[in-house]
Design a protein around this nucleic acid. Structure first.
Lengths: 63, 63
DNA sequence: ACATTATGTCTATGACGCTTGACATGAGGG
DNA sequence: CCCTCATGTCAAGCGTCATAGACATAATGT
């Protein structure tokens, strides 16, 4: 499960900590998701989609 | 995180076991998700969307 | 009435998601 | 040269996702 988090974040000039705060998760979680160590839960995927105002399918890609 | 699995499945006259087989998960997982005991992982949510040929956002609803 | 299928639920086990706290490295600004 | 910020990563702990196997009950078919 690949994702475009790093790019989307960079486009907005947000640090991982900035994004973590908006998502109400830890900075380590954002980092782990970006670096592909694990996928977010479905509820967190929805919050990510909300923050970027995009569909989940536009952010997370089937491998 | 509410979902429309039970309805979508009924529309197709699939049993929980039928759906489980298509998703390659256990029947207990399908049941647990339908009865709201837990949310699927993001990869499983994608497979569910694929099986029903719908967007994740059309199947799973922000509470 | 009997057999089969469908659904809900329980237990126990293992893997994954997320946390806090910590530490290392690299980049940039004073 | 320091100081700060950004990123990556580790460990330990807790709750969630998913499994297999079992059992109870309801619904369907013959």
């Amino acid at each position: 499960m690949n994702n475009r988090l790093k790019v989307l974040r960079a486009e907005r000039s947000w640090s991982q900590a900035d994004l973590a705060e908006r998502l109400e998760v830890s900075r380590q979680s954002v980092n782990a998701i970006e670096t592909g160590r694990y996928d977010p839960s479905l509820p967190l995927a929805f919050r990510i989609a909300d923050v970027f105002d995009m569909a989940i399918e536009e952010i997370f890609l089937r491998d």
